[in-house]
Amino acid sequence: PPHGGSTRVGKVRAMTARLRALRRFAQGRRFDVAFSHASHELPLVARSLGIPSSYAFDYEFARAQHALGCRAATRVVVPDAIPQDRLDRLGARARKVVRYPGLKEEYYLHDFEPDRTVLDALGIDRSRILVVMRTPPDVSLYHRHGNTVWKDVLERLGRDPSVHAVALARTPDQRDDLRAAQLPSLLVPARAVDGLSLVALADLVVSAGGTMNREAVALGTPVFTTFSGRLGAVDERLVREGSLRRLVGADELVVARKASAGVRSMHPPEIMLERLLEARGIAPATETIYRPGV
């Protein structure tokens, strides 16, 4: 089913369609366990079919969806940064909560190597400072704020001749607006690109989202957030550490070449899988879960 758009009515209709489609798909297939990251429809359907489920997320203030997912799931899997009192409000009592250390991005980026050909494919001028920008999540219920800082930063970077900025839009409307601005230093890809490689190879990331910020932190790229909603516990910790910097005004942005990469210590993905499998009470041997290079 298509995205529900930015209205609550549209989102409810889309959720209803997804629930029906997912139930049709899952019914009769004899699944042993269901995993979901912030997709609350899956634990709802899993519960209706008697399938144990793990519901994972790392931003606790998307309350509408998490209140459904947490209550329906067998286990709720979250970073150790999120305090229990915030989870209690979502219906995730301590007895069903499973925690993992660090960032979720440090698990799926465990053996990541960037593809440098993405720069040539996009026509990046390597003599200039490469900045990757991510637009605000304007269609999300948890982000109902005008984001003037992001627009000011876009204007500043888009007119800086020493910069080549790649703006990654979330929606066709955002992409059209970016192109209509006709900023000389701004590149707006026409289709999906290898964002992970771009983030790893960039000198700087400016993002109004969450996941791309944390990917930048994990990959050692300096990152500023223009997110205008309430920061979650994971990002609060990163701000305290100095790994993530929050922009209040465009004049605070430091534009410079990236120093030598300081990639964080990654976590083997089998640790995450073991946490997720707790929904079914399974703790299999490491070698049956994870084989490097496969």
Rank of each mutant, 00 (worst) to 15 (best):
G10K: 08
G10F: 03
G10Y: 02
R13D: 00
T16A: 12
T16F: 01
R18W: 09
R20M: 06
L22R: 03
L22G: 02
L22N: 05
A26R: 00
G28A: 09
F31C: 08
V33Y: 06
V33N: 09
S36W: 11
S36G: 01
H37S: 09
A38N: 09
S39R: 01
S39Q: 07
E41N: 02
P43N: 12
V45C: 03
R47V: 01
S48C: 03
S48K: 13
G50M: 00
I51R: 02
F57S: 00
A64Q: 10
A64K: 04
Q65V: 11
Q65K: 06
H66D: 07
A67V: 07
C70N: 09
A72K: 08
T74Y: 04
T74R: 08
T74N: 05
V77P: 00
P79Q: 10
D80W: 14
A81I: 02
I82F: 07
I82N: 07
R86E: 12
L87Y: 04
D88N: 01
D88H: 00
R89M: 12
R93L: 00
A94D: 06
A94T: 02
A94N: 04
K96Y: 08
R99L: 00
Y100A: 14
Y108R: 09
E113G: 08
E113F: 10
L119D: 08
L119R: 05
D120E: 15
R126Y: 00
R128A: 03
R128K: 15
I129A: 05
V131T: 12
R134W: 03
T135H: 03
P137I: 07
Y142F: 14
K151L: 14
D152M: 03
L154G: 09
L157E: 08
L157I: 13
G158W: 02
V163C: 04
A165L: 04
A169R: 05
T171W: 10
T171D: 10
D173K: 01
Q174E: 14
D176T: 11
D177T: 12
A180N: 11
P184Y: 13
P184D: 07
L187W: 03
D194C: 06
G195Y: 01
L196P: 06
S197R: 10
V199L: 05
A200S: 15
D203L: 13
V205I: 15
V205E: 10
S207Y: 13
A208N: 11
G209F: 03
N213P: 04
R214A: 13
V217C: 13
T225E: 03
G229H: 14
R230N: 10
G232V: 14
V234S: 01
L238P: 01
V239G: 08
R240H: 12
G242C: 05
R245A: 06
G249D: 15
G249P: 00
E252H: 02
L253G: 07
V254L: 15
K258H: 05
A259H: 11
A259D: 14
G262W: 03
V263L: 04
R264V: 08
E274L: 15
R275E: 01
L277N: 02
R280N: 07
R280D: 14
G281W: 10
I282H: 08
T286D: 11
E287W: 05
E287G: 00
T288M: 07
V294L: 09
